[in-house]
Each structure stands twice: as structure tokens, then as C-alpha cells.
């Protein structure tokens, strides 16, 4: 059980899992042997040489050249082997396959944004199975780290520069994606899923995702999709519950006090302004923490406004 694959790790799903897990289990085996050996010898000494009244310690050498060389050389050989195997595996994980499919990743407090070559965008990562995927990542604010335990993948996402990483997953399925670099209050909420789809399904998805408004049955339906996909749901409830931001339930068309004095009516122009420049008018009692959605397309803004209107009427 101790050395069984599933005991230590979540099921591996990427092509590099084998090398990684093998190295882990190799080090584990070496460590277990050394630990058992040292503890056994130590325990034996402690029991055998415990104090007996009237007996004094036996004369024994205070050093032993052969012994000291042996216990320096054997660990050295093991270390060199672990180093060699580890470094070649590491280099392979850091060498991007030239034919890899690229996904641009933007991390911000506290959500992920995955951007595809055809301008599709989603808070979850969708990738085709059986193909090398290269993630090119940057952060808008603080350091984040993209981690997918099932792929044994982790890479810091750093503001002011790009980092990258790659993986290939042959088995379609859904996997967890975490932020593993502490990034502030809602760090533990910075989660996403990885959806690995068969190539055809992925092609279909990515085409639809590029034009959410065009592919949705109605503007209202598109608005609802965008409410979830663009991360609004994280801070604005549709149930009346107050989260980080005000709830959307019954709010469209109402007048609110804004921090710094004054009042504002939540109309079409206010929603638009709040998306593009969120700090212009913050509702009193809330922190100015909303990220900007400056790049959002006009038809998407319209769809979201439609959705907010429907919530005002309680549909």
C-alpha cells in the first residue's frame, strides 16, 4: 500500500506523470531504506548499550576511515543518480514542444482567464486530448501559481513577465486547477477546472466560445452565460445575498448612494461604466476591489445589461 501509485498521488493523467511518479517512489524507497536502517541500528544501540550499573563504556575508536568513506561514497552515488534523472526529467518538462497548441493565461485576483487564438475566452481551461498544450501566463496584479495536481504541473504566474509550461493529457475528463501561490484574501477561491475534450468536441467548443452572444439562443441567455463565465458570480449574487459586491437581485433601475458622496441610478450607462472603469462610482459600503473588463465586446456588455434587467423584474 505504501508504495502503491494511488496512495500518495491523485491519479496522474498527463504524459509526464510516469517519470515524475517513478522518481518520487525511487526517492521514497531510498529514504525508507535509510530511515529503517538508521532507526533499527539506533534502537539496537540504545537497547544494547543502555547503562548497566558497574559496567563502563567499552573502548571504541573515535573514527574509522573505511567506514567514513563508505558512508560518504554510497550516498554520493545515489545523489548523483537522483540528480541526473531528476534534471533530465525537469529539462523535458521545461522544453516546450514546438508544435504545441498555445493558450494564453491571465491571472488576476481571484480568477483565471484562458484566452484562445480565435479570441475565445473562458474562466475554465478547455484543451484537446492527445495534444501538447503550452500555457503562456502572466498576472495583472500579484504573483499567482497555476497548479494542476493530476498533471503534476505547477508554474508561478508573475506580473511584469511571461512564464510558460506545457502538458499533454490523453484522457478526456475534468481535472482540478488551483492557485497555489498565496495571493490575498480570497486566494482559496481562485479555482478552475480543466476540461480535456476529444479534438472534435474541443473544436466545436472553441468556435462557440469565441462568439457567445452569436451562439446563444437569446441575448438574455448569453447574458446569463457571461455572468458565470466572466466571473461576475464570484462577487455579485443573484439571490439577494451580499458577497464582496452588491447583489444583482432587484438592483437594476434602483438608486444607490456611492462612496465619497452623491447618488447614482443603476442604468445601462452605469453598468457600462462600472465594467470599463469599476472605481468611478462604487456603491457605498463596498470595497473598491472590482477588476476592470475594459476589453469586453459591446454585444457582451449589452447581453449582461439584458440579464441584469431580467433580475430586476425577478424573472
Amino acid at each position: 500500500m505504501f508504495f502503491a501509485q494511488g496512495f500518495w498521488f491523485p491519479d496522474g493523467a498527463s504524459t509526464n506523470t510516469g517519470d515524475h511518479d517513478w522518481l518520487f517512489h525511487f526517492i521514497l524507497a531510498i529514504s525508507a531504506i535509510f530511515f529503517a536502517l538508521i532507526i533499527a541500528v539506533g534502537t539496537a544501540f540504545v537497547l544494547k548499550y543502555r547503562r548497566r550499573p558497574g559496567v563502563s563504556a567499552e573502548k571504541s575508536p573515535t573514527h574509522n576511515g573505511t567506514l567514513e568513506i563508505v558512508w560518504s561514497v554510497i550516498p554520493s552515488i545515489l545523489i548523483v543518480f537522483i540528480f541526473y534523472y531528476g534534471f533530465t526529467t525537469y529539462l523535458a518538462s521545461r522544453t516546450m514542444p514546438p508544435e504545441a497548441f498555445e493558450v494564453q493565461v491571465t491571472a488576476k485576483k481571484w480568477s483565471w482567464e484562458f484566452n484562445y487564438p480565435n479570441s475565445a475566452q473562458d474562466p475554465d481551461l478547455y484543451v484537446p486530448a492527445g495534444k501538447a498544450i503550452r500555457l503562456v501566463m502572466t498576472s495583472e496584479d500579484v504573483i499567482h501559481s497555476l497548479s494542476i495536481p493530476a498533471f503534476r504541473l505547477k508554474q508561478d504566474v508573475v506580473p511584469g513577465r511571461y512564464t510558460d509550461s506545457w502538458f499533454q493529457c490523453d484522457e478526456p475528463g475534468t481535472y482540478n486547477l488551483f492557485c497555489t501561490e498565496y495571493c490575498g484574501t480570497l486566494h482559496s477561491k481562485m479555482l478552475a477546472k480543466v476540461h480535456v475534450l476529444p479534438q472534435a468536441e474541443f473544436d466545436d467548443w472553441v468556435e462557440k466560445a469565441a462568439d457567445i452572444v452569436g451562439n446563444a439562443p437569446s441575448l438574455l441567455a448569453a447574458g446569463e452565460i457571461l455572468y458565470h463565465k466572466r466571473g461576475c458570480a464570484q462577487c455579485h449574487s443573484i439571490t439577494g445575498e451580499t458577497l464582496t459586491g452588491p447583489s444583482f437581485l432587484g438592483s437594476f433601475g434602483t438608486e444607490r448612494a456611492i462612496s465619497g458622496g452623491g447618488r447614482v441610478t443603476m442604468d445601462e450607462n452605469y453598468v457600462r461604466e462600472s465594467l470599463v472603469n469599476p472605481q468611478a462610482k462604487v456603491v457605498a459600503g463596498f470595497q473598491p476591489v472590482m477588476p476592470t473588463f475594459k476589453g469586453m465586446k459591446d454585444d457582451e456588455i449589452t447581453a449582461i445589461i439584458t440579464y441584469l434587467k431580467s433580475l430586476a423584474k425577478g424573472e
Binding site: 515524475h20 526517492i27 537522483i82 531528476g86 526529467t89 525537469y90 501559481s145 495536481p149 504541473l153 501561490e181
Partner: peptide, 13 residues
């Protein structure tokens, strides 16, 4: 385990 970089990638943080 941590010194062996490929293993460290998974167990880091």
C-alpha cells in the same frame, strides 16, 4: 524530495 526538481514541481506549496 524537494531537491529533485520534477518531484518538487508537484509538492511545492
Amino acid at each position: 524530495f524537494m531537491a529533485a526538481t520534477p518531484v518538487d514541481i508537484h509538492i511545492h506549496d
